[in-house]
């Protein structure tokens, strides 16, 4: 720098420390605090976005994902191969990646259920998902449940865990019947579309028969999700015939409740112990008003 000579004359190290080191360190600190604050507010995934199969839990995922997009490429490549294998059906024009969710409506019922769009997208700068991380929006493009899981194979960092033995064991999210008033099956009709589109049909999604209280003589078949088997692929949400899906896949953290850590389920504890946990039924003293103790 041109002022170097001047600085040399007046105790260079001290001057440097005062004019360069301290402001630089302070500036860096301010930026770091900003970064950390931003990160804290942005740690949770928005409810419409689901991570690919095998993704580590969100907080670990953000430490592991290198933001390279190779899973997204693998997903698109797989779809292209699928399309060239099967004779191309007249699919709706594939929307560009990164289209906003509001354009979902246009896609609507006209898009074939076997999606024309690659599942995975890469988050952009300026959104509420960490930029460069992969996600999908089930209502637009559910996971296609490829048996060889090309996205997981493509991941160089382990953010998508290769220990996932089968796509059927994936836990991308959990389907929840969020609207039990507008779901056609809940109204007493036999829509059943989500149930029929479930890749783990009769395990992850069952129809539970109930009496239709409105008519008194009919049955209602309530779509019921079982978290043990649901992969969170989103085919149920994608196929729901309502304008706004009654069944939605949510990130696990938002779909599931958590029991208090001190809670014990009595019947399970009883099974574990092999016998009743209390000796006998309690004998309560009988107190009648006319009897003196």
């Amino acid at each position: 720098m041109d002022s170097d000579d001047k600085k040399q004359e007046q105790s260079p190290s001290r001057r440097r420390f005062l004019t360069e080191t301290i402001p630089a360190a302070a500036g860096a600190l301010v930026l770091a605090v900003g970064l950390a604050g931003h990160q804290r507010s942005a740690n949770a995934l928005p409810p419409y976005a689901i991570r690919p199969p095998g993704a580590l839990p969100e907080e670990k995922f953000l430490a592991a994902c290198l933001r390279c997009g190779q899973c997204v490429r693998a997903c698109a490549e797989n779809l292209r191969q699928d399309k060239s294998r099967t004779t191309a059906s007249p699919a709706a024009p594939a929307p560009q990646l990164g289209e906003s969710i509001s354009q979902l409506a246009e896609l609507g019922e006209n898009a074939p259920l076997e999606t024309a769009v690659p599942t995975l997208r890469l988050a952009e700068f300026g959104g509420d998902i960490a930029p460069g991380t992969p996600y999908f929006i089930p209502r637009i493009s559910p996971c296609r449940m490829c048996e060889d899981m090309p996205c997981v194979k493509a991941c160089p960092s382990g953010a998508l865990n290769k220990n996932l033995a089968s796509i059927n064991e994936a836990k991308m999210g959990l389907a929840v019947l969020v609207d039990q008033e507008n779901c056609l099956n809940c109204l007493g009709l036999r829509c059943d579309v989500c149930y029929r589109n479930c890749p783990v049909i009769d395990k992850a999604l069952t129809l539970e028969m109930q009496v239709n209280q409105r008519t008194g003589v009919h049955a209602r078949f309530i779509p019921t999700v079982h978290s043990k088997h649901c992969t969170g692929c989103g085919k149920c949400e994608r196929s729901c015939v309502l304008e706004n899906a009654a069944i939605k896949v949510l990130p696990l953290s938002q779909a599931r409740g958590t029991l208090g850590s001190h809670y014990r389920v009595g019947w399970e504890e009883k099974d574990k112990a092999g016998h009743s946990l209390i000796p006998e039924a309690l004998q309560l003293p009988v107190r009648r008003p006319e009897e003196k103790p």
């Binding site: 933001r67 990646l97 952009e124 960490a130």
Partner: peptide, 22 residues
């Protein structure tokens, strides 16, 4: 923060990723 935090803002990868993806 336990996160690859710079990638929220890194213009180097952001620009390239923008050209390659969206």
């Amino acid at each position: 923060t336990g996160s690859i935090i710079w990638e929220w803002f890194n213009p180097v990868t952001m620009l390239q990723r923008g050209l390659l993806f969206s």
